[in-house]
Every structure is written in structure tokens, then in C-alpha cells.
Design a protein around this nucleic acid. Structure first.
Length: 304
DNA sequence: GCGACAG
DNA sequence: ATCTTGTCGC
């Protein structure tokens, strides 16, 4: 799903003499969570695509930027200072759309039925780690495989690819799935895969690590540097970890490797139990970030 | 109640 | 994630 292109086609629907807002476009994409992504996408890429980006403004009718103001005035839109006059009368929100994000959410929930949250792996030899970095729409992904017991480096691979989906909270999978799928082609499957993001500690219990685990059919664990949902149960904390609770259910752990100030958040992806996910994450931590992920991150940075 | 929200 | 320099501390 090329969401950038889908967004561009929505923007093209705004007629001259009318304006729309980041939020209305996000709703037309299917989720108001996409508001930030809409703004960032138009700000960053409007130069490289022929769309009337200047007709998209803030929800309050305020205009940021001289260039946008000038272009709107050329279309006879009355502006006083930074505010559009009678802006509510010219706001366009009657988009023709199929709400692609709603469709993706449904697919996410269908796949979630295949999720297994028990230890369902036979061996534990090779631990893989995947990380992706970006410069504009250019994505670099790296895979690092290490021996679970000796921590010896076993394999690495990096690839480059164009991204067709912006970052939207809770839809991270759809940004990174294409490049990670490509990255994992023709690779000896590891016993288990570490991913940069959440597993079941996700509003719909199906974050990046869970989604990729199911799609690739590989046991997986999510390692996140920030919380997406839930709270850390500090009253149940042990020396270096505490359970992560979301809607009354345990969905992962906050882990402080080697007494670090800021924890990492560990959650089962697929075919791994809660206790096992914590144990493996802890065992792979030489620094704050588990070693296969840390090495993968360094590789993607070097590739740019 | 409202808003924010992994990377 | 990315934009970015020096700097405080083990």
C-alpha cells in the first residue's frame, strides 16, 4: 500500500478556492492518528510532486509560511494576517476515499488470530536482529545474526529500498514490513528474531514484532526504547525489571539492563512467552540495547 | 474528559 | 526516525 501516493491523490481533490486541514486528510486516510504524518509528508515532499499542498492548513484556519499564503491569495482566498476569513465556509472535507488505514487495521486484526504467545521454538541457537533507518523516503535495513550462547557474530546483511508509507503510531508495521520482508529473503531463519518496536504491548496487541513474527513465521520479541501504551507496574518491580500492564493485562516488561537510567520495553512478538521474552532480551544485552539490534542499528547508520 | 502514542 | 556540538562522567 503506497500511502504517500494515496495521500497525494486526496490532496489533488481539494478544488481551487477551497482549503482542507491535516486532520481532515488524516480522517480521509482512515485514522486521525495520521495527522502528524500528513503534515510531515506534505512539508517534506511537496516539492517533488505536483499537488496543491498549499490548500492544506492547520485545523484552526491559521497559515504557516509566506509561500503558502501567497499561493492561496492567488486563488482569491481572503486572508487577514495568518488567518483565513470565513474559513469554515471554504473548508473541504468531502473526500472520495476508501479509508485505507481502516482496511489495514482490519487486516492487522485478522492476522492477530494466528498469534501464539507460548514458547513454540525447538532450538535456541541463532538470535537475529533487524533495524531500519531513513533519510527521506530512502530506507536502509540491516540484519545481524549472533550465537545465543557465545554471542559470536554469525551473519550480517544490509539492503536499501524506497519507503511508501510514513510513520503513523500503531501502524509502524506497514512502514517497515516491505523492506524487512525483502531483507529476510534467502536468509537462514534464526531461532528467534529481535525487532525494534513493540510486540503485544500495542493498543491492539499486535505491534511490529508480533506482526512480523506471524508473517515470517519466526519466533520474535519486540524491543522498544519508548512506551506506546500501558504503564510500568513499579510496585511489582524486581531489581532490574518491572511488568508492563495494559488494560489490566501483563503485556511485557520494562527492563533496566546493567542499571541503565532509562529502561527498554520488552514484549513477546510471536511464539514466545512473557517470561522467556524477558530472559532472552536480558541475556543479549551487553549495553542498553540487545546486541543484535545494536549492531544492526550501527550498520544501517553506516550505510547512509 | 482529552490528548498523545513504537520508529 | 531525523535535525545536530559540545560536553559531562565512568
Amino acid at each position: 500500500m503506497d500511502l504517500y501516493n494515496y495521500l497525494y491523490n486526496l490532496v489533488k481533490q481539494i478544488p481551487p478556492g477551497r482549503v482542507s486541514t491535516y486532520t481532515h486528510l488524516a480522517l480521509a486516510l482512515g485514522d486521525k492518528r495520521a495527522k502528524r504524518a500528513v503534515k510531515e509528508t506534505l512539508d517534506a515532499f511537496h516539492d517533488s510532486t505536483p499537488i496543491p499542498w498549499h490548500r492544506v492548513i492547520e485545523d484552526n484556519g491559521k497559515i504557516e509560511g509566506k509561500k503558502k499564503k501567497h499561493l492561496l491569495q492567488q486563488e482569491n482566498i481572503p486572508i487577514h494576517k495568518t488567518a483565513i476569513q470565513k474559513y469554515k465556509e471554504i473548508v473541504f472535507h468531502d473526500f472520495t476515499t476508501t479509508y485505507p488505514l481502516k482496511t489495514l487495521r482490519k487486516k492487522q486484526l485478522l492476522l492477530q488470530r494466528f498469534l501464539i504467545l507460548k514458547d513454540a521454538f525447538t532450538t535456541l541457537d541463532i538470535i537475529g536482529g533487524v533495524d531500519v533507518s531513513y533519510q527521506g523516503r530512502d530506507a536502509h535495513a540491516a540484519y545481524v545474526a549472533m550465537d545465543y550462547h557465545t554471542h559470536a557474530l554469525v551473519a550480517t546483511k544490509t539492503i536499501q529500498m524506497k519507503t511508501d508509507f510514513p510513520y503513523i503510531p500503531t501502524y509502524l508495521t506497514y512502514r517497515e514490513l516491505p523492506i524487512i520482508k525483502h531483507l529476510m529473503k534467502n536468509i537462514t531463519p534464526p531461532s528467534l528474531l529481535l525487532l525494534d518496536g513493540h510486540g503485544i504491548s500495542h493498543p491492539h496487541h499486535f505491534g511490529l514484532a508480533s506482526h512480523l513474527g506471524v508473517v515470517l513465521d519466526i519466533p520474535s520479541i519486540g524491543i522498544a526504547k519508548n512506551l506506546l501504551c500501558g504503564t510500568v507496574s513499579l510496585q511489582n518491580a524486581k531489581h532490574d525489571f518491572a511488568p508492563l500492564i495494559h488494560q489490566g493485562k501483563k503485556v511485557g516488561w520494562a527492563l533496566w539492563p546493567h542499571g541503565t537510567q532509562k529502561p527498554i520495553f520488552v514484549s513477546p512478538g510471536h511464539k514466545v512467552s512473557l517470561p522467556t521474552s524477558l530472559g532472552i532480551a536480558k541475556k543479549m544485552c551487553q549495553y542498553r540495547i540487545p546486541e543484535p539490534l545494536r549492531k544492526a542499528h550501527l550498520l544501517t547508520q553506516k550505510k547512509k
